[in-house]
Simulated assay, not measured.
Amino acid sequence: MTESSIIPVFDGHNDVLLRLRRGGLNSVDAFLNGEAAGHIDLPRARRGGLAGGLCAIFIPSPDQPKPGNADFATPAQPDALNETLAMARLLLAIEARSQGAVKVCRSAADIRRSIAEGQFAAVFHIEGAEAVAADLDALYVLHQAGLRTLGPVWSRPNVFAYGVPFRFPSTPDIGPGLTDAGKDLIRACNELRIMIDLSHMNEQGFWDIAKLSNAPLVASHSNAHAISPHSRNLTDKQLDAIRDTGGLVGINFGVLFLRDDGIRNTDTPLEVLVRHVAYIAERIGIEHVALGSDFDGTTIPAALGDAGGLPKLIDALRAHGFDAPSLAKIAHQNWLRVLEQTWGG
């Protein structure tokens, strides 16, 4: 066993529930026992040292195109709530059928315990709050069901804000900020201690949240705009604001957000991903950079392959010069610190 393989990774973003949703409850056993499709299942997570992460519930737009330079329509609100509940049920079913191998975590203490006991620590996350109406009733119910992190928007507008479209090259300064309902949503998330995810937020929305929120600023799966000028990536000024609140950035493995040419090319060396980690660590400090793979939600480097390939990334970070304490911070400690600070334990 190599040194890299024993470093547990807590990951800031995956879309495995959307992939599994297409197979319904029958896909639960495929996740637990292993399958050829996608980036994550339990055997590959164990092989790669993936100890857990934020498991996103995301509702695609009707007839959604592949994200290149694209704007997206808003899905119908009733369908979004129904689909959100269906994917939440999938997550709970995975936990129930796992014989203790998967734990849906509702606190940082839960995550720490799960990692120590070798369980996959899953966190219920919503990416794009279309399931929640402006009255916010569903938010409170979903929180009771285990929701602990939420991105107000995906890359499309909804009743709360204007998500940043996929554009390259482009700044994230596209469109207006939070609506009045969006401001109410941020206040309610602070009240419930739900982590607010700024990935997919446009720049005006980012600054509106920075002004309103009393929690650390977090972008769960975004990269450095200075390296890859994609609208989804964070400017230096945004990075500085994240640092100033004690927040973090989870590095997205998607080649669209890593490369400086904006090309969807899987022949992208892991050194390009490492470059984003190093840039953000140098700009705002090692305590503010982590991993946010976007497994099962984007095109990743072939050199990584899937969750089983995470030791290769740890090796690449080590080869760049990150020492053991720094690797532990990037791999899981920074996420645990920020979640503990946000959730209160």
Rank of each mutant, 00 (worst) to 15 (best):
A88C: 12
A88D: 07
A88Q: 10
L90F: 04
L90Q: 01
L91M: 13
L91C: 07
L91V: 03
L92Q: 14
L92D: 11
L92F: 15
A93M: 11
A93D: 10
I94R: 05
E95H: 10
A96R: 14
R97V: 03
S98G: 08
Q99R: 15
A101V: 02
V102K: 00
K103A: 12
K103L: 14
K103N: 09
C105R: 06
R106F: 07
R106A: 08
R106D: 11
S107Y: 08
A108Y: 02
A108D: 13
A109T: 15
A109C: 12
I111W: 06
R113P: 03
R113M: 13
I115D: 01
A116W: 13
A116G: 14
E117M: 10
G118Y: 10
Q119N: 08
F120D: 02
F120A: 06
A121I: 10
H125F: 05
H125W: 02
I126T: 07
I126F: 06
I126M: 10
I126W: 00
E127D: 10
A129G: 09
A129Y: 02
A129H: 09
E130Y: 13
A131S: 13
V132P: 01
A133F: 11
A138C: 09
A138N: 10
L139T: 02
H143C: 05
G146I: 06
R148A: 01
R148Y: 06
T149W: 03
L150Q: 08
L150I: 11
L150M: 09
G151T: 04
G151K: 03
W154Y: 12
S155L: 07
P157F: 08
N158Y: 07
V159H: 14
V159P: 13
F160N: 05
F160L: 08
Y162C: 14
Y162K: 12
Y162M: 14
G163F: 00
G163E: 07
G163V: 05
G163K: 05
G163I: 01
P165A: 01
F166M: 12
R167Q: 15
P169T: 09
S170P: 15
T171I: 12
T171G: 15
P172L: 03
P172C: 05
I174Q: 11
P176G: 11
G177T: 11
G177K: 10
L178S: 05
L178Q: 02
G182T: 06
G182Q: 04
G182A: 07
K183C: 13
K183F: 09
L185H: 02
L185V: 09
L185K: 04
R187I: 12
A188F: 10
A188V: 11
A188P: 03
C189L: 09
C189W: 00
E191M: 13
L192E: 07
L192I: 09
I194K: 00
M195K: 04
I196L: 05
D197G: 04
L198P: 00
L198A: 10
S199H: 04
S199A: 11
H200G: 00
Q204N: 10
Q204A: 13
F206Q: 05
W207G: 04
D208T: 04
I209D: 01
L212G: 11
L212T: 12
S213Q: 08
A215D: 13
P216R: 05
P216A: 08
L217D: 00
V218C: 01
V218K: 00
A219F: 02
A219D: 03
A219V: 03
H221S: 03
H221A: 00
H221C: 01
S222N: 11
S222C: 12
H225R: 11
